[in-house]
Amino acid sequence: MIKFWNKRAKLGIITEKPELEERLKKIRKEIKKSVNKHFAGSLAIRMVDSGSCNACEAECNALSNPYYDLERLGIYFVASPRHADVMLLSGVMTFNMTPHVKEAYAQIPSPKWVISVGDCPMMQAPFERTYAINAPATEHLPIAHHIAGCPPSPLEIMEGLLEFLKKI
């Protein structure tokens, strides 16, 4: 184990984009009132996959790796919709998932928002309409903000989330 700590000390901090923190500080100041009111200072996200290819999930997982470390911005993923402020929705809203996505949305306490991530929920990915696809998601849920990309990179997701914070 000592070897690990030696390596850890040698490597230092590799997290990138400190300017994002600066930007967040600025945004925080601007929206302090609303963030305090809505989110008690931090933003809790429940990720729901409504039929994606797993690339958007992989990029959201990458947000927690040492290069991005999303939690330093006070934004974190939670295990239950009941703990969440925001639903992050990926995928094409398949016929089989639609009722479950609506149920998850119903379980989020108000005030609540839905952010769609990736091209699928807006039906802009190469997938075409079939019997098993119910997208666009706007027909089923109130989408407050959209993060485009197939899939959006972790940085694009981070910037999208900050934009959303500014918007509300």
């Binding site: 039929g51 094409v92 089989n96 079939t130 098993a132 696809i133």
Partner: peptide, 11 residues
């Protein structure tokens, strides 16, 4: 499974 069934074979 089959919650993410998109009907790709048909598509």
């Amino acid at each position: 499974h089959f919650y993410t069934h998109k009907g790709i074979e048909k598509m």
